[in-house]
């Protein structure tokens, strides 16, 4: 079973990396970039075949390690 966990910074948290990327996009002349926030994507393969169990495992993975919930939000998706 394939899954994806997306980790993003909570709104209001300063994102200097996103700001730097935003500046680089503007200097490259990419039009219409209002703002950039960067994050992380984890593609995970699971042995589980039960969707609910897989989601529970991914949630545990995100809470315990993948995200620092002081500053980050995460989203769990089971893809197939």
């Amino acid at each position: 079973m394939k899954a994806r966990v997306t980790v993003t910074l909570k709104s209001g948290i300063l994102d200097p990396q996103g700001k730097a990327i935003e500046g680089a996009l503007k200097s490259l002349g990419v039009d219409g970039v209002a703002s950039v926030r960067q994050g992380k994507v984890f593609d995970i393969e699971l042995a589980a075949t039960d969707k609910a169990k897989a989601e529970a495992a991914l949630k545990a993975a995100a809470d315990k390690l993948l995200a620092n919930t002081v500053i980050e939000n995460y989203r769990v998706e089971v893809l197939s």
Binding site: P16, Q17, N68, V70, I71
Partner: peptide
């Protein structure tokens, strides 16, 4: 709390 990237990058 948390230690973030230095404000000046």
């Amino acid at each position: 709390g948390v230690l973030m990237r230095n404000a000046g990058l």
